[in-house]
Design a protein around this nucleic acid. Structure first.
Lengths: 170, 170
DNA sequence: TTGGAATGTCAACAACACTGACGTAAGCTG
DNA sequence: CAGCTTACGTCAGTGTTGTTGACATTCCAA
């Protein structure tokens, strides 16, 4: 509060992007964009009697193969009961394999089966296609800004999880 | 397909942001950021026995006072039955007023009451605070890119709705 | 004026989140 | 070894939010 905008050595006029109206537009942009973001996978999932929760599980198991249930729980931010319902169907349908840990036998390590990889591919192809189009349309500079704002919007804990996954993938 | 990246006169190296890995990171950034985006209002709503759907309804009624149920339906992208349940509780609790249309008596025009405005203020204060922090952290250029990418990610119909709201607010 | 389209409401159901309680197996610690 | 904790799974119950289906009201046009 009581920030007149001259604190960080920024000229007052460059703070136009912090007006309430600009912030509201950012909020609405997030809302509408997220709908587009999930629309394509949702259509695919609807035919398979799966939902968004299954998509998320498959995505992160693919991203971090061998991850434990607890780890996945923290990333997804749901209760174990909720995740368990999803994992049970994925394992029953042969998309995910759960292996007892070698060093710690209490842990279950999760892997995608071939069928699981096929679904993951199908879902992420659709989602990446939209992301690719959006990135191409907006250009490289915009993509950098996009990523910086999103990162700043995350809870600190999620920012760490996100950073860990980034290292994982590169 | 078969786009070698030289089409629009861009050098090959500036297309690094379109690699699968970059796209995956964009996807995960959206996922984690959206969680942060909704976290603060969710906390407030939990105490009031309301959910995200109530927040969305209140937000857009505030944004376009007098809007019809049908109009709100299109913006929110849910069935009228789903919206109706939410509106019913909001009206019963005295946060929203529903007035029968003058020219077309089938329509209901929606308005926030004083109590409704108070809730909207409380929710959007929290959400704007996070957005403001993120915008400030990322800087004005990043905000422009953020908005451009999000806009490109929307379904065309939602992009139009978004543009209409923007004009409305300015 | 009659029949269809548009608008909105009520009822029932499914997906997915939550809490709370409990059970089992495995690891850790005094 | 005994007792505590951790990791995972499950059962039962509840709430929000989405869905379809059926229906009433109102408007408009043939």
């Amino acid at each position: 509060m009581r920030d007149t905008g001259m604190g960080a050595g920024l000229g007052g006029e460059s703070l136009l992007f912090l007006t309430d109206e600009q912030l509201r537009q950012g909020i609405e942009a997030m809302f509408f964009a997220y709908r587009g973001f999930t629309a394509d996978p949702d259509r695919i999932l609807a035919d398979l009697a799966y939902g968004r929760a299954h998509h998320r599980a498959v995505h992160f198991i693919n991203r971090a193969p061998g991850t434990t249930v607890n780890n996945l729980l923290n990333i997804l931010g749901v209760t174990k009961q909720s995740l368990n319902r999803v994992l049970r169907t994925l394992i029953a349908d042969g998309l995910v394999e759960s292996r007892v840990g070698q060093t710690d036998k209490r842990e279950r390590h999760l892997f995608l089966t071939d069928a699981g990889h096929a679904l993951e591919q199908k879902l992420s192809d659709a989602q990446r296609a939209r992301m690719r189009t959006a990135f191409r349309e907006a250009g490289p500079d915009a993509v950098g800004g996009f990523r910086r704002v999103l990162e700043a919007m995350m809870d600190p804990e999620m920012r760490r999880a996100y950073a860990r996954l980034k290292e994982n993938g590169s």
